[in-house]
Amino acid sequence: MKYRQLGDSGYFIPNMILGTATFAGSTEFFKKWGNVQVDEARELVKTCVDSGFNAFDTADCYSLGDAEVVLGEVLKDYKRNEIFISTKTGMWMSENPNDIGTSRTKIITSVEASLRRLQTDYIDLYHLHCYDAKTPHLEALQALNNLVKQGKIRYFGVSNYSAWHLMKMLSIADKHGLQRPIVHQAYYSLAAREFENELMPLALEEKVGTLVWSPLSGAMLSGKIMRKSQDTKGSRLGTDGVWDMDMEHLYTITDALEIVAQESGYSFPQISLAWVLSRPSVSSLVIGARNTQQLKANLSAGKIVLDSKHIELLDKASQRKLAYPYWHQRFTVDNRDPYPVKRY
């Protein structure tokens, strides 16, 4: 198990975090992802802790709070100062118009509710789960800073922000002498590299750590879907709980993964996770699992260092045609080896 620095803070976390969107499964949407109950969750958490991975990520919207309840029930068996808990707010929780977004009221109310469900006095890392166009950045930042002063959260970050939204928040924090978000939890994988266009350069320039969610693209890189065979039985892939994917592009990636797997002996998920861990700005990966066997295999990817020729093969297979102005920037300045073009 390897530790990495959490953004620009002085705190270090494991390079793998157990995500708990599969816990509880008490709503129709999250049931498609999984329905891990307390006993099963206890085994998954124990597997992580025994392997040295003591970090867990959840959100208030996962099964409308029930995932936090399951995680809290399990974690009460451990010493609090030896466990890292990350949770989020901002997504829809009810039909009440004030029960979505990141207003001061929503943030404060959500933190108090998460603390109760998690059975803890503080949250190590608190995320704004989604961008809220209705709430001023300053309002959210002031609420988060007050919660840090009160000791209810230790650090905070954002999730699913565009680069200009995150940069604006960082600038407002600096202008008003407030603590900055230190991490961005973002979607990034071999099959989804849009993060590299602006969010990765921003992360590097502003020292914002990246926690990657769905580094296997919702199990699309699990090895169950390949050009010549598909096996979705007993998997989330057999439901409509996954998102659209350019299948020809996916097959190009799985063709490359098949070559790397044959030459390295690693599985598709292990290779895909190791590739993301090799990327700049990445602090940790948030991974999910339905059973301990799958979890142990995925955790082992945290120790894998891919051969440079395999990374080059995967890079080439997963690269998409760049949107404007990124293709123009690469075309015009590539010969000068500029930052950030060749850094990734």
Score class of each variant (00 low, 15 high):
M1A: 14
I13F: 05
N15F: 02
M16S: 12
V36N: 15
A41E: 13
C48Q: 05
C48G: 09
D50S: 12
S51H: 13
G52E: 12
F53S: 15
F56Y: 14
D60M: 11
D66G: 09
L71Q: 13
E73K: 14
V74R: 08
R80M: 08
N81R: 08
E82S: 06
F84T: 03
K88L: 05
E95F: 10
R104F: 00
K106D: 07
I107S: 00
T109P: 01
E112Q: 10
D121I: 01
C130I: 03
P136G: 10
L138D: 01
L138S: 07
A143K: 06
V148E: 03
Q150C: 00
G151H: 02
R154W: 01
Y155F: 03
N160D: 10
S162T: 03
K168W: 06
S171Q: 07
I172Y: 02
K175Y: 11
H176F: 08
I182M: 10
V183C: 02
A191W: 07
A192D: 14
L202Y: 03
A203S: 07
T210N: 07
V212P: 01
W213G: 08
W213C: 04
K224S: 14
K233V: 13
G234S: 10
R236H: 10
R236Y: 08
G238W: 02
D240M: 05
M245E: 13
M245Q: 12
E263P: 09
Y266G: 08
S267Q: 05
P269Q: 06
I271V: 03
A274G: 01
A274N: 05
S284Q: 04
I287L: 08
A297W: 04
A301I: 01
K303G: 15
S308D: 11
I311R: 15
L313A: 14
H328Y: 11
F331L: 04
V333N: 12
N335W: 13
V341E: 11
V341F: 10
K342C: 02
Y344M: 05
